[in-house]
């Protein structure tokens, strides 16, 4: 297969970027999108050019490191899939493919398709945990968790933190990401003690980082590679509101 690529090139955060056009040939249908970019990079290196920088690591859809806009869609055309698990058989020979980085105020471009997502880590640091220092835990089976509750927690905990939800959202909101962590921990019995502080602190941090608000558009859930549902956002809204009414979120650590 042969493709024409329009790829965003940007040397660093300060210099303005632009699209460049490339062609790759002899791409096999079983190759992944990132392997196709590898081929392009080998070609660029051989011809004395500069390879395209893009983030990736596990290449099996679980680490959340890869993330690019492919023809305007976060992670590309196939639902419930990360860019590394997207294969070229989903494209047609001769297609023109536009490749861009995540675009959001809170995700500055470092180079080409690589963005800084540390803001997501800081949302977790604000309260996305259960304070249980090593050694303090009771026997694991002393805290029964009904199976449906454990399953709901797991559905939310499947988030890989890739940032596709932010990139897809017209407001660049990180609500789905934040809701997934609050949803994971707030339904569990172990998470009750810090429940309202967690919701308030994380949402406040999200806003401080420059992510936008949620206006229930739903693009986030549509592109989420782990199919995290909008119901978690509804839950976060409830937790946040109740937390605010209780005056939660004022603790320091």
């Amino acid at each position: 297969m042969k493709f024409k690529l329009r790829i965003w090139r940007q040397p660093n955060t300060l210099i303005k970027g632009r699209f460049e056009e490339y062609e790759v040939d002899d791409v096999g249908p079983d190759e992944s999108f990132l392997e196709m970019l590898d081929m392009l990079n080998e070609q660029l290196i051989a011809n004395g050019g500069e390879p395209v920088a893009f983030d990736h690591d596990c290449r099996e859809g679980i680490c959340g490191m890869c993330g690019i806009m492919i023809n305007g869609v976060a992670h590309g055309p196939k639902a419930a899939t990360t860019a590394c698990q997207l294969h070229m058989r989903h494209f047609k020979d001769g297609d023109v493919i536009v490749v861009e980085p995540w675009r959001a105020k809170a995700f500055p471009v470092i180079k080409d398709l690589v963005v800084e997502r540390a803001a997501l880590d800081r949302i977790i640091q604000a309260g996305g945990y259960i304070s249980a220092s090593t050694g303090s835990a009771p026997d694991a089976n002393s805290i029964p968790v009904p199976k449906p509750v454990a399953d709901t927690a797991m559905d939310a905990a499947a988030c890989i933190g890739c940032g596709a939800c932010v990139a897809a959202c017209p407001n660049s909101s990180a609500m789905l990401f934040t809701a997934a962590k609050v949803g994971h921990l707030n339904v569990l019995p172990q998470g009750q003690a810090e429940r309202f502080d967690r919701a308030v602190l994380m949402v406040d941090e999200m806003e401080a980082e420059g992510f936008g608000g949620c206006t229930n558009i739903g693009e986030c859930a549509a592109v989420c590679p782990k199919e995290i549902g909008l119901d978690f956002i509804a839950m976060l809204n409830r937790e946040y509101l109740r937390g605010k009414l209780k005056g939660a979120g004022s603790r320091n650590a």
Binding site: Y129, A132, A137, A140, A153
Partner: peptide, 14 residues
Amino acid sequence: DQCVAQGVPFAREY
């Protein structure tokens, strides 16, 4: 024990 206390959602029985 430690992982359960942290909220790791291990598989559960009914």
